[in-house]
Design a protein around this nucleic acid. Structure first.
Lengths: 232, 232
DNA sequence: GTGACAGTTTGTCCGAGCGCAAACTCTACG
DNA sequence: CGTAGAGTTTGCGCTCGGACAAACTGTCAC
């Protein structure tokens, strides 16, 4: 195993409170792995034998229904801990994670978790905070799906994507990884047809600019207005 | 503060792994409080200065949208830990909890948490498991709302209620606390009208039996069939 | 007992958004 | 450079379920 540099974890908020030595200890148990675009990091239902921190790239986490439909749960951005099913007491991963662009992650065997927590109790706290944040996000999403109409849900989803993974470009902010209308549909509980229609309408109004697997927001404020307008 | 008996925590799975002495320690920081039917245990947005274990009764946890609509997040049943916002690093409660029947809970000041965890690291683990379970449930709900039509969502919600708080009666299983059609609507993202219609239809088929703030399921299996049938 | 009210039922109407279908267009790969 | 296939756009009809409205009923307070 090649030595990993401490600075690797600088991007990971979950490890922010650790001392230098603790970081060395934690890294001693990790290895880093590349995940080419399109590859699967872990599969829903598989034994949860590893947990991860994303160093570079972007992952999509999807959940499959018994009927075979899939729903995008979230996107993982660099610095995030993910695949922490075991920490939550689960035996298997509740969803599938795949790389949407070439990615790089630190990987720990799940079995190392108890050891690490014993040495650095702050890690347990971090994990709790992370899961708490996700729980909150999930609840917000439930509330949205229960109370808002499709157009506003799409606006919210898009704004969230920008916040997480927005990249400034020529004439606006774009989502920093390839994303299809279908993906957006699966995030918001609609069909790609409806998403396509909505984006087309927005494009006509100059709010966004489309493209193949690409979404550029020209007027984030205008989008925000749509997201927050109770029932236009 | 009156002494609290160890056996109080027998009902709480989160404390199952603690030794007798640890339980005494934990209870030393707690007091028990009664919450009459209809009263509020904590309010969304308020400072998260306490956390709880429900000993007896049932609570409803609701989230309010900026527009004033409310969504039922879940019901708390005896033995559950709740109001654990602080453990997740939050300053305020993300939702409101109110008693749907007269209830009794153990209450700890949030400030006691670090002390307790320092003495019983198993508590941190428990909290992580609990939050993990809730996250899972929330995701299941997101997936449901994204992919299933209203009738199946209602069926699922009802089955979940029975599982959590079902009480066997004369001719079926009933939800063990008063619940209105409106409540069910707020759990499933519909209107009380639609829920009423659906329940009426089920009643006509002999699946359930209605009543004021009361739902009795006569044929759980039939309900399950509705919940699982892809698109009848 | 008798209001008053919260909760429920049912009817009618209507529109958002889904299903289906077909055409179009970029991109990658050979 | 040409072709296959993935991703996107758009039209049309229809249905699910929301909005509005009104009547009904069990329960509780006085």
């Amino acid at each position: 195993m090649s030595a990993l540099d401490r600075s690797l974890l600088d991007v990971a908020p979950g490890f922010a409170t650790l001392t230098g030595e603790e970081i060395d200890l934690v890294l001693a148990h990790a290895r880093s792995l590349r995940y080419p675009k399109g590859s699967t990091v872990f599969e829903q239902g598989a034994a949860a034998d590893s947990f991860f921190v994303l160093l570079h790239g972007h992952l999509q986490v999807v959940k499959l229904t018994p009927a075979g439909q899939q729903v995008v749960i979230r996107y993982v951005v660099p610095g995030e801990m993910f695949g922490i099913a075991v920490q939550m007491g689960r035996q298997s991963y509740p969803a599938t994670a795949q790389a949407v662009i070439d990615s790089l992650a630190l990987v720990w065997p799940s079995s190392a978790w108890p050891t690490l927590v014993a040495r650095c109790p702050a890690l347990a706290e971090s994990a709790l905070h992370i899961v708490g944040t996700r729980l909150d996000e999930a609840h917000v999403r439930v509330v949205e799906m229960a109370t808002e109409e499709v157009e506003r849900r799409v606006a919210h989803a898009l704004l969230r994507l920008l916040k997480q993974a927005g990249r400034k470009v020529e004439d606006g902010i774009e989502v920093a990884f390839p994303i299809t209308r279908e993906d957006v549909a699966q995030m918001t509980g609609t069909t790609l047809h409806t998403v396509s229609r909505i984006l087309s309408a927005w494009e006509a109004r100059g709010l966004v600019e489309g493209g193949r697997q690409r979404i550029v927001v020209r007027d984030p404020h205008g989008l925000f207005a749509i997201a927050e307008t109770p029932k236009a």
